[in-house]
Design a protein around this nucleic acid. Sequence first.
DNA 1: GGATTGTGTTAAGAGTTTTTTAACACTTTT
DNA 2: AAAAGTGTTAAAAAACTCTTAACACAATCC
Lengths: 225, 225
Amino acid sequence: MVKLKNILIVEDDKDINEMLQELLKQAGYDVKYAYSGTEALLIHNDKIDLIILDLMLPGKSGEEIIKELKDIKDVPVIVTSAITDMDTKLDLFKLGANDYVTKPFNNDELLARIKVHLKNNTNSDSSILKIKDILLDSNGFKVSCNGKDINLSKIEFEILKLLMQNCNQVVTKSVLFDKVWDTVDSADENTLNVHISKIRNKLKKANPSEEYIETIWSIGYKFKN
Amino acid sequence: MVKLKNILIVEDDKDINEMLQELLKQAGYDVKYAYSGTEALLIHNDKIDLIILDLMLPGKSGEEIIKELKDIKDVPVIVTSAITDMDTKLDLFKLGANDYVTKPFNNDELLARIKVHLKNNTNSDSSILKIKDILLDSNGFKVSCNGKDINLSKIEFEILKLLMQNCNQVVTKSVLFDKVWDTVDSADENTLNVHISKIRNKLKKANPSEEYIETIWSIGYKFKN
DNA sequence: GGATTGTGTTAAGAGTTTTTTAACACTTTT
DNA sequence: AAAAGTGTTAAAAAACTCTTAACACAATCC
């Protein structure tokens, strides 16, 4: 089975967004789409190989969005815009844009440019989870919160990963025991409490104003978003 | 010592060619130049990292030249041209052009685009890794730290290379065992510790004031930058 | 050939970090 | 208010790592 490349379209104009969806599907890509930058940031958790980003977005500016997108994961970004101003263009390149296509653009040229940037991107898709201000990199075993790196032990890391993977869902204690502890005789109930406590402490140290892990009485824990 | 990136300028207009030479030298690149496609084919060798190709060349057509250049070595090619015709543009992309900039172009935009395409290419070719004050030459099996040559055994070399290739990311012990030891029955856990210890010693001897390899408990090691 | 040098592995003890346990205070539910 | 569950802390226990030293083996050099 061939894995299709995933392209995320970020475009507020409904007609253009739908046109692009159609164009890229025809060209054999898996397409995701968003109508705003904030929406895009949510979707970007998934496996995205390239982003087509329109500049004229309601809410956040294109500059902010490209910065945050690149922070999460370094995927190629092709900016499309009606703005021909050179300073804008150069700013975006500086922030990490990989290409800049002026609207109205030729569809085939866009496809050609997409191809170029997909080809160059050899990045093995590192599975990075991002919820709130927490970044968890499963491959690199790295966690940061509020921009600060935090050090988690292996068990703490596994617990947080599980909770984040099931964000907004309750992860039962038995699931946690099963997946975190390999041994048959699972650990004491209290052991889990201690680990949760330590994780909360470390997160609180990085960002005191936010609560991440919610206790679901007698059932388990939930990562709040 | 930092190795400069080599850019080959192919442009028949003397003024533009010289202007580009100056621009790119200023930007910190090593510059080679040709006034025709055939001349470019002679110059093009292993050391060229990117080509700026003008379309309006005497003799061979741009299409032919890009094909032959890419045959020699697949380096990124940025086409510059006064031609705005879309079919020409698409043809060139099809033949392997990585970007197409219409003349007259903005110098800073060209530099930005050069940066994009050089960045994408870094993974594959360069056999020399440089992080902090360590230079590791995969071809020559040579390592220097703080200006001093240091002698690593083959296994030590492979370990350090892996860590440097995945700089700032944790390299798990299982990855190390897989990639450093070919045999099915991988070495003892402790064997790895001993090798790491020896590498750390040799690096410390060359530069006592720096820490390079970080231990990630129960997971693996990480080269810190 | 025999000595020398260098490499790779194993073993052992010291050292470090993580995990668990236990105790007690606290919170929620009934 | 009692019962059940949770949070936090400190200390013991377990797991893991680091270093040193010893040994086997291979390559190199008189």
